[in-house]
């Protein structure tokens, strides 16, 4: 597995230790994520994958020791779809609280079309299915120009075609100089090389 560090570092984590309910989830975890890399965090349920992601993106600031340095804007997609049921998909994206940018109407429409929600732009979100909610959330990946993507199990509730499309999107993002850190239980078949971070055994480049 070629471990060339081609890109500039996007995120550096040093000696992260997290203890939850008396159990030590991980200890002295240090790694650097560079542009052009796709990382998959593996581990059994409760191994602390989501906690690690929340530490990396800066949502968790207390409760762990160690430092995390971020050198580029990041986009975090969590378990929840961060979608207001009262608003339509178009309004959800236009008024999105992540404050990345002001998306124009045609940008939103093209993004929604690419995630398979063509025609659903102005349907009230509470009539959409959970999978469609997640697709609206994934549309943000197309709209935002953040270099680092932190995705928490992006494939849940997405059908087969959607998964392939998403894997292609991840590959193109990484190829285009971005970086992706994701947690998932599914094996990834992606064109670019994948680095694994197993919370049980530690770094497996």
């Amino acid at each position: 597995m070629p471990t060339r560090d081609s890109g500039v570092p996007v995120l550096a984590a040093r000696s992260l230790c997290l203890e939850r309910g008396g159990r030590e989830l991980f200890r002295e975890l240090s790694f650097t994520i560079c542009a052009g890399q796709l990382w998959q965090i593996e581990g059994a349920n409760g191994a602390g994958k989501t906690s690690l992601l929340r530490i990396l993106c800066g949502l968790s600031r207390y409760g762990f020791t160690g430092q995390v340095e971020r050198f580029a804007p990041l986009l975090y997609l969590g378990h929840q779809s961060a979608l207001k049921a009262l608003l339509t998909p178009r309004e959800n994206l236009a008024f999105h609280v992540s404050g990345e940018g002001c998306y124009g109407d045609e940008q939103i429409e093209s993004a929604l079309a690419r995630v398979g929600l063509y025609g659903y732009e102005d349907v009230a979100s509470h009539t959409l299915s959970a999978g469609q909610h997640r697709r609206v959330n994934l549309a943000r990946l197309l709209l935002s120009d953040a270099t680092l993507w932190l995705l928490d199990e992006p494939f849940t509730a997405i059908d087969k075609a959607g998964v392939d499309e998403l894997q292609a999107l991840l590959a193109s993002h990484v190829a285009g100089g971005g970086a992706v850190v994701m947690t998932s239980h599914q094996a990834l078949d992606v064109s670019c090389d994948v680095r694994y971070l197993n919370l049980g055994t530690g770094l497996a480049a």
């Binding site: 975090y76 929840q80 979608l83 609280v97 992540s98």
Partner: peptide, 15 residues
């Protein structure tokens, strides 16, 4: 309501 559907987390990550 924003806490329950995850929007509040996105707000905290806004620049």
């Amino acid at each position: 309501s924003d806490f329950e559907d995850g929007s509040l987390e996105q707000l905290l990550l806004a620049p």
